[in-house]
């Protein structure tokens, strides 16, 4: 595949992830969509490194590491909220509303 096509694919995946975070109300699905966004970023980095140099492939490893750390903390937070509300649907907990 040509880098442009890969870039286009990555943009599509990114938009899917973004829409998913906005539309869905299940915390785990939202989290998955965020992971989708980050992987779209990885794909874009790899595709762009075809044009501009090897750095892009390096960045992918940073992004993956940070995404893993974020997953660890995020899932812990989701577990902690499940203990309180027995639900991970964000509409179900509404202590904090204005």
């Amino acid at each position: 595949m040509l880098p442009t096509q890969v870039l286009f694919l990555s943009a599509v995946i990114f938009v899917v992830g973004t829409l998913g975070v906005i539309v869905r109300r299940n915390a785990i699905i939202m989290f998955l969509c965020i992971e989708l966004q980050l992987n779209a970023v990885n794909m874009a980095f790899v595709a762009l490194s075809r044009y501009v140099g090897i750095e892009g492939q390096l960045f992918v490893f940073f992004v993956m590491t940070v995404a893993a750390a974020e997953a660890a903390v995020g899932l812990a937070i989701i577990i902690s909220i499940f203990r309180h509300y027995e639900s991970v649907i964000t509409d179900d907990f509404s202590f904090l509303r204005w």
């Binding site: 939202m30 970023v41 903390v73 995020g74 937070i77």
Partner: peptide, 18 residues
Amino acid sequence: KGSEAGLKYFLLGAFSTG
């Protein structure tokens, strides 16, 4: 409340990171 705040912060923070 703390968990809820953490979840909201996490989801939007990670979203903005993306």
